[in-house]
Write a protein that binds this DNA or RNA. Structure first.
Length: 288
DNA sequence: ACCCAGGGTCGTC
DNA sequence: GACGACCCTGGG
């Protein structure tokens, strides 16, 4: 395949570091020149910001213009949403200013499901390593600039991996969960195309929760990152921490009720809770 | 060397 | 509804 390239000028709300290091994705790596290279679907792209220009080049299955428009969510007006959120209070305002270039990527549903099952009680460097090894073992190779990249394995490709195979790749206790969820999806006991057409977010969430390894937090991440449901507010240790410190002020963080956090988030951020969560997560993690 | 925590979930009480 | 167990790894 031939390399394609696109240059975006005077684009606002686009900062590679913010986008790729806010915890939503696991397959983008920083290069020596501060650009980021990543793999999604059958594409390998490098993203470099130079003043007010964003230069994106790489190997794309389709026209890079369309691929980039969809993946980087150019249909959404982030400036407008940020202005609204900044009026909520000074805490969210500060977190938005800190991570002002965040965008929520439109990621593949299948990859999002498996990636966030792997994320359970895990840290980001290790999650990235596991996914990299899984892709190398079961995905397809793409060559570009004398480097080898591997696509995230399709459900069918991953169904060739046994529980023991997965354990060898370092998944730990998540091996069984990934294995079983892969079988369920591969045999269409849960049909992902059908899930994409479900309009009711609550019903959608209930179906996701039936997958092994998918609990409340992982389900919310799948809804937000794989199904464009911005009204959900995934609560992990970092978000729990920041919400407790800012608003709830319970001396024992572990005793904070998730329901209380959720209600607070709905009241404050409403249909943009998911984006607000990303600003808060990135802010807290980077300044910790 | 030792301990702790990490984008939680699951089984059990 | 609470509580402990759970693979493994990087960082203190």
């Amino acid at each position: 395949m031939k390399e394609q390239k696109i240059i975006l000028e005077n684009i606002e709300s686009f900062e590679p570091k913010h986008i790729f290091e806010c915890g939503q994705c696991f397959r983008w790596d920083k290069q020596n020149d501060e650009s980021y290279t990543g793999i999604f679907k059958q594409n390998v792209l490098n993203v470099k910001k130079d003043k007010n220009k964003v230069i994106i080049k790489g190997i794309c299955k389709n026209d890079i213009k369309d691929v980039v428009y969809d993946y980087f969510d150019f249909a959404t007006d982030y400036n407008k949403i940020k202005e609204k959120l900044k009026n909520v209070d000074n805490y969210i305002k500060e977190s938005i200013e800190f991570g002002n270039g965040i965008r929520i990527l439109n990621q593949d549903l299948w990859e999002t499901i498996i990636s966030f099952i792997i994320s359970a009680n895990n840290n980001i460097p290790r999650i990235k390593g596991i996914i990299q090894r899984m892709s190398k073992q079961y995905g397809k190779k793409i060559e570009w600039n004398n480097n080898e990249y591997y696509t995230f394995p399709s459900c069918e490709e991953l169904s060739n991996a046994s529980v023991e195979d997965l354990r060898k790749l370092g998944l730990g206790f998540r091996d069984k969960r990934v294995y079983e969820t892969t079988q369920i999806i591969n045999t269409k006991k849960v049909n992902l195309e059908q899930l994409k057409n479900e309009e009711n977010t609550k019903k959608l969430r209930e179906q996701l929760l039936e997958l092994p390894g998918v609990g409340p937090k992982v389900a919310d991440c799948i809804l937000l990152f794989g199904l464009k449901r911005w009204e959900v507010f995934p609560i992990d240790v970092w978000v729990k921490r920041v919400m407790n410190e800012l608003y709830i002020k319970n001396s024992d963080e572990k005793k904070v009720n998730n329901t209380q956090i959720e209600e607070l988030a709905m009241k404050k951020y409403d249909k943009y809770a998911g984006l607000a969560q990303q600003y808060l997560f990135y802010w807290k993690r980077e300044t910790a």
